[in-house]
Write a protein that binds this DNA or RNA. Structure first.
Lengths: 246, 246
DNA sequence: CAAACTCTGTAACTTAGAGCACACTTTGCC
DNA sequence: GGCAAAGTGTGCTCTAAGTTACAGAGTTTG
């Protein structure tokens, strides 16, 4: 997360007959896509970004909207003191929603977005976006949905930060990750997990160790293994306060 | 904030020739309103809510969208331990954006909204909303703007909670309030200010007292007076750590 | 294999914020 | 006036979280 590459964008035109293939696996959009929506996507250009590319940062202006086709983009906020906090991720089939602010309001936006993996995305021009928003019910609903979902997530972030203890937030994070991974180990360093949740490496280490003592998880270098999801659930529900540090 | 009245809604039909009058003072929407938008507003019904009415709460479903015409609605999240945190306010000329989540996604939403004053609002049906979204460029842009602006505010909330000390957050809050009020006193109790920022009455008291010692502000029962906006600015920029508590 | 680097563990300490307790003051009301 | 309620000030204590510092384990690379 700390090594930021310089922006790189290799431009290619997407062969129109491949659009369906590109989006085949992402039903969210497909369900709603109608002819207008497809027409817009036909005009889009397929860009490729290397892993770690900073896709936008602090006050960078952004005149396009991108639909991610492959890879993930991490959107985060960083502090002066070198801490970071992940706001959300943009995954295949999803829109870089924060571009919208720029696009709609013309306001700059003090957050960063960075490709976590190599990323391919369909870049849509501002005018095509507005045009399709007016014509395509499906696309409009899709965009509205994305926005309101992000908003809902953000509210959860806020309430976690305001009211929940760190161990609880970590436990919840682990829970959702293990769920996604079907219980398979999560590959992440303590430092990166700190950056996910806006805290420090040391706190993460301590709390994870505590969870290991409680036999929820098993730690190894660079990854976290699930030991007992039942115990983890208990911990994440706030039962069982953290044990003293000695 | 703690005394919650039971929901009350007095229904009246808005006389169509009064629409302009109702919205006259709120240029944000007016600027963008076109014939379709006005047509929708003509179908809307003017509801009145008493002060303190809970407009929606935890998992209440909400089938309509409301445009606030008079009064303000406070949208907040509350914790199990009796703390609260204001997420934002809906003021005249603005939409209750969180309804949208319900409307668009059909998802319930674990936050509360409460009329701070008596509130009048134009209630728009779901179908009219979608209909107008498709027809009116102005309305669509207005909605998109509102959403992205809220999202931007939410990001600021998150970063404040994650990275900033409480005294800083309070100082910033004071700053923006005084700016709105043109330097006139802010009427709020320490306890309510705690609910604004997701903290406790005691912390607010202590920190405000500290600011008073620094001569930024002057405290009196139920209100905060600006003393020197320059000093406050310095404090809110993080210069001058909080003095020790003795 | 040795050096360099990355990652983890953990002890000691500091600080921010919360919670409790209680005194005091202002306001409003009978 | 006198009582109740709401609001404020503040000391004390406790705990969550951050900070510093360092040791050691694992990994990579020359």
């Amino acid at each position: 997360m700390s090594t930021l590459a310089t922006p790189v964008a290799n431009l290619q035109v997407a062969p129109s007959d491949k659009l369906h293939d590109l989006l085949a696996d992402y039903p969210d959009l497909l369900e709603q896509a109608d002819t207008h929506c497809w027409a817009m996507l036909e005009t889009a250009k397929l860009h490729t970004f290397d892993a770690n590319t900073v896709m936008f940062s602090e006050n960078m202006e952004c005149k396009h909207l991108m639909l991610v086709v492959e890879g993930t983009v991490r959107v985060f906020k960083d502090s002066d003191e070198g801490r970071e906090m992940t706001l959300y991720r943009v995954e295949p089939g999803e829109l870089c929603i924060h571009n919208l602010n720029n696009l709609v309001n013309g306001m700059p936006y003090p957050i960063m977005a960075q490709a976590e993996t190599s990323v391919r995305g369909l870049v849509i021009s501002r005018s095509e976006f507005h045009n399709t928003m007016s014509k395509s019910d499906g696309f409009r609903n899709y965009v509205l949905r994305s926005l309101t979902e992000r908003l809902a997530n953000m509210v959860n972030l806020v309430s976690g930060l305001a009211f929940d203890r760190l161990d609880l937030r970590i436990a919840c994070w682990l829970q959702t990750q293990f769920e996604r991974n079907c219980g398979r180990p999560i590959a992440i360093t303590h430092s990166d997990l700190g950056h996910e949740l806006g805290t420090t490496r040391e706190m993460v280490s301590r709390i994870l160790k505590d969870f290991e003592h409680k036999r929820c998880i098993k730690l190894s270098r660079g990854s976290i293994h699930l030991n007992c999801k039942h115990t983890l659930k208990l911990v994440s529900q706030g039962k069982g306060k953290r044990t003293s540090r000695g």
